[in-house]
Amino acid sequence: MSVLVPTSLVDALQALAEHPDATVLAGGTDLMVELNGGHRRASSVVVVNRVPELCTWRHDPVSRTLRLGAGVTYAQIERDPIASLVPGLAEAARTVGSPQIRHAATIGGNVGTCSPAGDGLPVLSALNAEVELVSAEGVRSVPFSSFMVGPKRTLRGPGELISAITVPVVDGWQGYAKVGVRNAMVIATASAAVVADSRRGTVAIALGSVGPTILRCPEAEAHAMEHADFGERRLAPEVVSHCCELVRLASRPIDDHRSTAAYRRHAVGVLAGRLLRRAFPNE
């Protein structure tokens, strides 16, 4: 086993080029659980949490985007100044593990692991986030929706590193909700994110833990958009109810050790309804 601790992006990419099969370690909160439990062996590990280029973030008010370096932690995201730029992502960040976990866990690690239960992922999906991948060959950008191809399966190739996640800074309400067996320190049994973009007049709904990837709900989104009054933040109760039904139909949950498909399907509709009522509090 080898452990490499590069302290610049150039060195990190060189390490990955030399060890294309290397496991990338950022905060360690996913990988170390597997190593400690003996569920995974790693022949080489490239530790990227000391790469300064990955740990910065930038708000561009002209393009109205926020570029989060892959090494930005959930502790940073849950606080200002990032929190007020992406309140939905901050809300998701607040539900990740404990303070100890959030001090270590990174947005890039969440996207790299790409578990359907990853708390940040429904928000990134609803925001149409872009994932930036860098390798010795160059840089490419992939929409999050195509980056995640299955449970813990992504488009990241050998030698590639997730360098940043870029999201739009949206006018309007955005939020995240999840259910689990208790309030603290819990992996989502079902989760949902809603982004209501009042400038563009769009509603985005994304679901976590109810399918092999994060799922968007085009029918529910279209129904909400057709009837929503963005200025008055108004949406009729029967429209919300129908959206919940469309969300349940869009979900593709399974039975596993954490819950049942039937419960997940029910719960994700409840969550989406709750979020829509927060986005549009007036009937």
């Binding site: 452990v3 601790v5 370690l25 905060g27 360690g28 909160t29 990988l31 170390m32 659980v33 190593l35 400690n36 439990g37 590990v45 530790v47 949490n49 502790a75 593990g97 404990s98 303070p99 100890q100 976990i101 001090h103 270590a104 320190m185």
Partner: peptide
């Protein structure tokens, strides 16, 4: 040993983390 109990908490570069989730060789 999976970051749930906090009984292994230490400070690494001033940040409170679970030492069970830190790769020791990466903390050089």
């Amino acid at each position: 040993e999976q970051g749930e109990c906090g009984s292994c908490s230490v400070l690494v570069d001033g940040e409170l983390v679970c030492s069970c989730l830190v790769l020791a060789a990466g903390a050089v």
